[in-house]
Simulated assay, not measured.
Amino acid sequence: MENGTELDQVMTGINQAKGLSNAHYIDRDTFEEEKRAVLFASWSGVGFGKDVPEPGDAKPVDFLGMPLLMVRDRDGSLNVFQNTCRHRGMILVEEPRKIEGAIRCPYHSWCYALNGELRSTPHVGGPGQNRHDDVNRSDLGLVQVRSHVWRDVVFVNVDGTADPFEIVHADLLDRWSEFEQPNFHGGESASFKLEVKSNWKLAVENYCESYHLPWVHPGLNSYSRLEDHYHIEKPREYSGQGTLVYRQLKGEANEVFPDYEGLSDKWDEGAEYIAIYPNVLLGVHRDHSYAILLEPRDLDHTVEHVEIYYAAPPKQTPELQSLRDKNAELWRGVFEEDVFVVEGMQRGRHGMLFDGGRFSPVMDGPTHLFHDWVASRLAVARAG
């Protein structure tokens, strides 16, 4: 684990900065430290609203060993609870399912409402005695985890210390305010995942920048060239890239996806791709968007969950299903092209003489900002 001086070398101007040291990618203790100081202390993505679409829908999530439960309440709101019974700590829900009545613990049958309230405690005072003066149900509801849903991504702040999501990401909410309108998931083909043998941070670093396009994405670069891209940089919040050349996908009869309503002219041929720290990657276009949730399974194992959304619901445009399938196939191809790079950097981090690397002062700004943010979160935690 590095000292403050080494973090300081990351948190300096890009012209002199070094990248995060090898320990941040291959050291178990550092991984555990980042789990607490970076992922649990920030607004991290853990799921998607589309996975619990109807009242009563519940889906368990394992977030780095933390058992969580996403639940859609009767009023349509989505809450996240610790997936742990308040009685003896039993896991409440093992698989995604519909909760018809209450969330019932399979151990002693304590039951909770969809809003987390403890509703029944069978035999808690003895056989046939379902109440006890010293067991106050109002104090024993499910432990709620702070959550916020944006662009269908379910964000949580596990340790409860972060500022409200709307404050932390006020700048990005304003930047993409034109897209605050109905967003419809594209269906079965619009949902896929990639298993990547690397630390989760490397996927963020690669996504941030367009520097690698000519060599890793030659097909994409053939029309959306490196020189057509620009940096998106908001220190200590998010970073990414934009392009001035977005080419709409067309079908055999030149059909296209419906556009989001009321967009400004910049989106006619533009698109933006942003990493919202720590682990969510987003892309917006005039006619579709996507979200990638990076699930850190382990030190060197990440699952990329990809979901694609459209301006119109698929059931209203069945004639565009083949185009949606093609769009998903194209994006899968682009994201798969990045896998060998991300996995190669992970293997390279076992080079014990590597010092964290240097950044191009011109081309690596977005990636440097992510390193700076991670280092700053660790510095704060260590100082606390």
Results as ranks from 00 to 15, higher is better:
His132Ser: 14
Lys35Thr: 07
Arg286His: 07
Pro278Cys: 12
Glu178Ser: 08
Leu353Ile: 14
His185Gly: 05
Gly47Thr: 08
Ala102Phe: 15
Thr317Glu: 11
Asp372Glu: 15
Arg324Cys: 03
His285Pro: 07
Phe155His: 02
Asn83Gly: 03
Pro106Trp: 10
Glu94Gln: 15
His185Trp: 01
Lys59Cys: 06
Tyr309Leu: 04
Asn115Glu: 12
Leu68Ala: 06
Glu54Met: 13
Ser44Ile: 02
Leu293Gln: 04
Gly49Leu: 14
Glu178Ala: 10
Glu188Leu: 11
Arg72Val: 00
Glu94Phe: 13
Leu69Asp: 03
Leu68Glu: 05
Val149Cys: 11
Gly76Leu: 11
Asp265Gln: 14
Gly19Gln: 01
Asp298Thr: 06
Gly242His: 05
Gly65Thr: 07
Ala311Ser: 14
Gly76Trp: 12
Asp163Gly: 10
Arg236Tyr: 11
Pro314Gln: 02
Glu255Ala: 07
Leu299Ser: 01
Gly49Pro: 04
Gln316Val: 12
Val158Leu: 13
Glu195Asn: 09
Val46Gly: 02
Gln129Ile: 15
Met345Ser: 11
Ala37Thr: 03
Glu272Met: 09
Val124Ile: 15
Leu244Gln: 10
Leu330Val: 13
Asn254Tyr: 13
Arg119Thr: 14
Glu6Phe: 00
Lys266Phe: 09
Ala58Leu: 05
Arg377Met: 09
His123Thr: 09
Val135Thr: 06
Ala383Asp: 10
Leu320Cys: 04
Glu252His: 07
Asp51Tyr: 01
His24Val: 06
Leu330Thr: 11
Gly89His: 07
Glu255Arg: 06
Val196Ser: 00
Ala203Tyr: 02
His212Tyr: 03
Asp133Phe: 09
Ile292Thr: 12
Phe359Asn: 05
Lys250Pro: 03
Asp8Met: 10
